[in-house]
Amino acid sequence: MDVRDVELIINGESARYDGLRTVSDLVAALGLEPKKLAVELNRAIVPKSAYGATPLSNGDTLEIVHFVGGG
């Protein structure tokens, strides 16, 4: 299991993250509730069931979205 720093672009903002291996780690590190959101990794949707099995690599681009008020 390779634990390392990764540079990720999340919701348009670039940042370094320590010790993240998977999408599951990232969601936890950000303090988000997985049930309420959707994650896109390099333009492909990551199913909730696959968060733990989806590794993150340097330079990955993620979109993390949820529902907000709208008409």
């Binding site: 959101l37 993390i64 979205v65 949820h66």
Partner: peptide, 19 residues
């Protein structure tokens, strides 16, 4: 009810949530 899909605010996570 209609709802919109938007980026999660990663800097201010205390904002009220629709759900």
């Amino acid at each position: 009810v209609t709802v919109a899909v938007r980026r999660v605010n990663l800097t201010d996570r205390d904002k009220p949530m629709l759900v």
